Deep mutational scan, measured.
Amino acid sequence: VTLFVALYDYEARTEDDLSFHKGSKFQILNSSEGDWWEARSLTTGETGYIPSNYVAPV
Score class of each variant (00 low, 15 high):
residue 1 V to K: 13
residue 1 V to C: 15
residue 1 V to P: 12
residue 1 V to F: 14
residue 1 V to I: 12
residue 1 V to L: 13
residue 1 V to R: 11
residue 1 V to N: 14
residue 2 T to A: 11
residue 2 T to H: 12
residue 2 T to Y: 11
residue 2 T to K: 12
residue 3 L to A: 07
residue 3 L to N: 06
residue 3 L to T: 09
residue 3 L to E: 10
residue 4 F to T: 04
residue 4 F to P: 01
residue 4 F to N: 01
residue 4 F to Y: 15
residue 5 V to K: 04
residue 5 V to E: 11
residue 5 V to I: 13
residue 5 V to M: 07
residue 6 A to V: 02
residue 6 A to C: 03
residue 6 A to F: 01
residue 6 A to E: 02
residue 7 L to N: 03
residue 7 L to T: 04
residue 7 L to C: 09
residue 7 L to K: 05
residue 7 L to S: 02
residue 7 L to V: 07
residue 8 Y to T: 06
residue 8 Y to I: 06
residue 8 Y to H: 08
residue 9 D to G: 05
residue 9 D to Q: 04
residue 9 D to I: 03
residue 9 D to H: 06
residue 9 D to T: 06
residue 10 Y to W: 08
residue 10 Y to C: 05
residue 10 Y to K: 01
residue 10 Y to M: 02
residue 10 Y to A: 01
residue 11 E to S: 09
residue 11 E to L: 10
residue 12 A to Q: 06
residue 12 A to M: 04
residue 13 R to H: 11
residue 14 T to H: 14
residue 14 T to Y: 15
residue 15 E to V: 12
residue 15 E to P: 13
residue 15 E to C: 14
residue 15 E to K: 13
residue 17 D to Y: 14
residue 17 D to G: 15
residue 17 D to V: 14
residue 18 L to K: 01
residue 19 S to H: 08
residue 21 H to M: 12
residue 21 H to T: 15
residue 21 H to I: 13
residue 22 K to G: 04
residue 22 K to E: 07
residue 22 K to P: 03
residue 23 G to K: 02
residue 23 G to V: 01
residue 23 G to A: 03
residue 23 G to L: 03
residue 23 G to E: 04
residue 24 S to T: 15
residue 24 S to P: 01
residue 24 S to M: 14
residue 24 S to Q: 15
residue 25 K to E: 09
residue 25 K to P: 05
residue 25 K to W: 15
residue 26 F to C: 04
residue 26 F to Y: 02
residue 27 Q to R: 08
residue 27 Q to W: 14
residue 28 I to M: 04
residue 28 I to F: 03
residue 29 L to A: 05
residue 29 L to F: 07
residue 29 L to W: 06
residue 29 L to Y: 06
residue 29 L to T: 07
residue 29 L to P: 04
residue 30 N to P: 04
residue 30 N to T: 08
residue 30 N to A: 08
residue 31 S to D: 13
residue 33 E to I: 11
residue 33 E to P: 11
residue 33 E to F: 11
residue 34 G to K: 13
residue 35 D to V: 10
residue 35 D to N: 09
residue 35 D to L: 12
residue 35 D to M: 11
residue 36 W to T: 06
residue 36 W to H: 07
residue 36 W to S: 06
residue 36 W to N: 05
residue 37 W to N: 01
residue 37 W to Q: 03
residue 37 W to V: 06
residue 37 W to Y: 09
residue 37 W to C: 04
residue 37 W to M: 06
residue 38 E to N: 08
residue 38 E to G: 04
residue 38 E to C: 15
residue 39 A to R: 00
residue 39 A to H: 00
residue 39 A to Q: 00
residue 39 A to M: 05
residue 39 A to D: 00
residue 40 R to K: 11
residue 40 R to G: 01
residue 41 S to W: 04
residue 42 L to C: 14
residue 42 L to Q: 06
residue 43 T to D: 14
residue 43 T to Q: 11
residue 43 T to K: 09
residue 43 T to L: 12
residue 44 T to N: 07
residue 44 T to L: 03
residue 44 T to G: 04
residue 44 T to P: 00
residue 44 T to Q: 03
residue 44 T to C: 04
residue 45 G to R: 04
residue 45 G to C: 09
residue 45 G to A: 04
residue 45 G to Q: 06
residue 46 E to L: 11
residue 46 E to K: 12
residue 47 T to I: 14
residue 47 T to N: 05
residue 47 T to A: 07
residue 47 T to E: 08
residue 48 G to P: 00
residue 48 G to D: 00
residue 49 Y to L: 14
residue 49 Y to I: 09
residue 49 Y to V: 07
residue 49 Y to S: 06
residue 49 Y to G: 03
residue 50 I to V: 09
residue 50 I to N: 00
residue 50 I to P: 00
residue 51 P to T: 02
residue 51 P to R: 07
residue 51 P to V: 02
residue 52 S to L: 04
residue 52 S to G: 07
residue 53 N to S: 14
residue 54 Y to K: 06
residue 54 Y to T: 05
residue 54 Y to D: 01
residue 54 Y to G: 05
residue 55 V to C: 01
residue 55 V to P: 00
residue 55 V to M: 09
residue 55 V to E: 01
residue 55 V to H: 00
residue 56 A to N: 05
residue 56 A to P: 01
residue 56 A to L: 08
residue 56 A to H: 09
residue 57 P to S: 07
residue 57 P to W: 05
residue 57 P to K: 08
residue 58 V to S: 07
residue 58 V to W: 13
residue 58 V to I: 13
residue 58 V to L: 13
